[in-house]
Design a protein around this nucleic acid. Structure first.
Length: 427
RNA sequence: GGCCCUGUAGUCUAAUUGGUAGGAUACGGCGCUGUUAACGCCGUGGUGCUGGUUCGAGUCCAGCCGGGGCCGCCA
């Protein structure tokens, strides 16, 4: 029997069996209170010595925190129990003992990360996992509803892309290869048959970034659409994000509330989001005495200031083309890129980077060369512009950053079960 | 790549100008028939490593190792 269904009042008065782990354990001599957790909730099990006999009582009294147990008993409504229901125990069996489990109320961050495999049992990380699941579920259903096909690109690649030296290199038999930083180029290849595609794949950055917004391995939600310009691209993003926020509010409201995020704020998220151009943003920041001039990218403090000005999600559009990636479409003067970054509320920073893609074979080649890339490695990508080229756009969302926002986390590492940071690859 | 902080029992932490390392929690034992991170009493257990300064180092210095925060880079 699942604890959740007991807490829903479906089994009051019945004798049932639950299976779970010891969440709390108290004893007053003649009564043991064992609070048992399963994936659906926690339930207090009350073991009375005069009801169960010496042997069962001893088993319940000596069990450990986090031990796994099977408990039988009669469900009763009782206001003295933490959840309003408790199990009057008739049988108690430990399945797996748990001597000296290194989990405590007051853990330092180092201990917590060293024991991440156990700390995942905490209420907080369980709530985050459920919210993340719900958000990704919502994303999938939105894409399907909007005629997008989910596709599965390769993770091992020859193309460094994004013009970065920050790739993880590995030996692919005798030749060097890399872990992907973005699936974009593979998605672009697939729009010629499926037109609208999306993927959820890991991306890797070999960058020693130690900030609340960076992981070396993160999950990248990317989409690419044929026959789509920058404007429509933005509309897709805001609808997708709004749908996911609304779904989380509706289906995981309890979890986000527990994590300190008011579900109502997520329920209210709706398109259209605010938009500002890069030029306007620079002016706004300069008015607030930020040290920024035209042609410079925004820093984290700039993004936080912007978040305060707009109170919600905001798109910053039309960045100077030379600041942005080689594949972005540009205006006629080649000054601005047809792109948009989505900044999250409350200083969560850049959640999405997206753009219309350039179909100008010549321009893409020039930009690649300017970034010191070997054009030969990109032949296949350039081929896409050679054969049946089509206006198209796409974007990439940082899943952990989005989940961090949904869950009110102060660091993206808690948005993923096993965070990878520059000096942590275990557990 | 830049700036800053930090390392004391299993865990969280205290220790004044350098002077016998204290508490909490966990764990072990005893007690307790309605606990809510139960409680009461008793017990075990500690200064990351190497060197230096000093009569004396958790404290000051150097190096090493570990960890964290902020920024750049980006999602």
């Amino acid at each position: 029997m699942k604890i959740g269904s007991i807490l829903d009042g479906q089994h009051t008065g019945e004798e049932i069996l639950i299976q779970g782990w010891i969440h709390r354990h108290r004893s007053t001599g003649g009564i043991v209170f064992a609070v048992v957790r399963d994936a659906t909730g926690v339930l207090q099990c009350t073991v009375k010595k005069d009801k169960v006999g010496e042997e069962v009582f001893a088993e319940a009294e000596t069990t450990d925190f986090e031990a796994s147990v099977r408990v039988t008993g009669v469900v009763e409504e009782d206001e003295r129990a933490p959840e309003g229901y408790e199990l009057q125990v008739t049988g108690f069996a430990e399945v797996g003992e748990s001597p000296d489990v290194p989990l405590y109320e007051d853990q330092g961050i180092e201990h917590e990360l060293d024991h991440r495999h156990l700390w995942l049992r905490s209420q907080e990380l369980t709530d985050v996992a459920k919210v993340r699941h719900t958000a990704m579920d919502a994303v999938r259903e939105w894409f399907t509803e909007e005629d997008f096909w989910q596709v599965w690109p390769s993770i091992l690649t020859k193309n460094a892309a994004e013009g970065g030296a920050n790739v993880f290199e590995l030996e692919y038999f005798e030749e060097p290869a890399y872990l992907t930083q973005s699936s974009q180029m593979y998605l672009e290849a697939m729009i010629y048959s499926l037109e609208r595609v999306w993927c959820l794949a890991p991306s890797f950055r070999a960058e020693k970034s130690r900030t609340p917004r960076h992981l070396t391995e993160y999950w990248h939600l990317e989409a690419e659409q044929a026959w789509c310009d920058n404007e429509e691209n933005i509309e897709i993003q805001e609808q997708l994000v709004a749908h996911a926020c609304n779904a989380v509010a509706e289906r995981a409201g309890e979890q986000v509330e527990q994590l300190g995020r008011d579900p109502a704020t997520l329920a209210e998220v709706a398109p259209p989001f605010d938009r500002v151009t890069y030029d306007e943003t620079v002016e706004l920041l300069q008015e607030e005495s930020h040290d920024i001039s035209w042609g410079e990218d925004f820093g984290a403090p700039d993004e936080r200031a912007l978040a305060r000005m707009f109170d919600g999600f905001v798109f910053v559009t039309h960045f100077p083309a030379k600041m942005k990636a080689f594949y972005m479409a540009q205006d006629e003067d080649e000054v601005y890129a047809k792109c948009a970054d989505l900044l999250g509320p409350e200083g969560y920073g850049e959640l999405i980077g997206g753009s219309e893609r350039s179909t100008d074979l010549d321009l893409v080649e020039r930009r690649l060369e300017a970034e010191g890339e070997d054009v030969e490695d990109y032949e296949w990508f350039l081929d896409l512009r050679e054969y049946g080229s089509v206006p198209h756009s796409g974007f990439g969302l940082g899943v952990e950053r989005f989940v961090a926002y949904l869950c009110n986390l102060d660091h993206v590492r808690d948005a993923v079960p096993f965070p990878r940071t520059p000096n942590r690859i275990q557990p």
